[in-house]
Design a protein around this nucleic acid. Sequence first.
DNA 1: CGGTATCCTTTCGGATACTG
DNA 2: CAGTATCCGAAAGGATACCG
Lengths: 120, 120
Amino acid sequence: MHEGCTVYQTTQYLTKKWALLVLFELYKGGDDYTRRFSELKESLAGITSKVLSQRLKELEEEGLVGRRVDAEHFPVKSEYFLTEAGLGLIDVIKHLKQWALTYKIDNIDCGNQNCKDCIL
Amino acid sequence: MHEGCTVYQTTQYLTKKWALLVLFELYKGGDDYTRRFSELKESLAGITSKVLSQRLKELEEEGLVGRRVDAEHFPVKSEYFLTEAGLGLIDVIKHLKQWALTYKIDNIDCGNQNCKDCIL
DNA sequence: CGGTATCCTTTCGGATACTG
DNA sequence: CAGTATCCGAAAGGATACCG
């Protein structure tokens, strides 16, 4: 087993609380996979600013999420979006969904392979 | 997003410390994907009995790992092995490895798609 | 051999308050 | 609006000892 393997590291920050949900919330963000901080916070019922901020920072450092800030005006406007790598990871999780549909009979299948709501 | 979704739950116990390593150690266990408790403990340098025992119990409850016990003789002999579902999950993680090879340039690729050592 | 029990440290995340 | 700072409780994991 190689030291510091990327896959293992990936699983470590992806499985922190809210991380996957944040990713999927961006995925649901329309054609550009973009959401604002406040939108994410509203959609993810129960998440605190602190944790949302932490997760976004981690995901950004890992290259899964990008960030655009408009500091020209007030209030500041900042947008988060899925990068190509982040989008690629969504595909991996779709494989995981297929696995779950095969071996975990209690899983709910909405019938739509690309459903963005029940991919998780 | 469906409540209690299996994929999300899966990520929660798979990302506990040592869980993936235990799974891959079994995967490396030969044609029958079987290892004994003490073998696992030796291979996973640094893991404690307590944690190994916990992880195995969780993975067994989730149906990824099976267990055979021979309590007839002393000392007791117990074997753990990958179930079909567990093996299916290995495939999912191979997809994750491909993702990492594409987007994480610092990942080490030994060149063998099915390499059991550096899949992680 | 294959674990369990206990204690202890560290980490994580929730609550709340505050700021440019 | 988009965060940061501080404090606190819960949970996870490591160290060590013990048992059938």
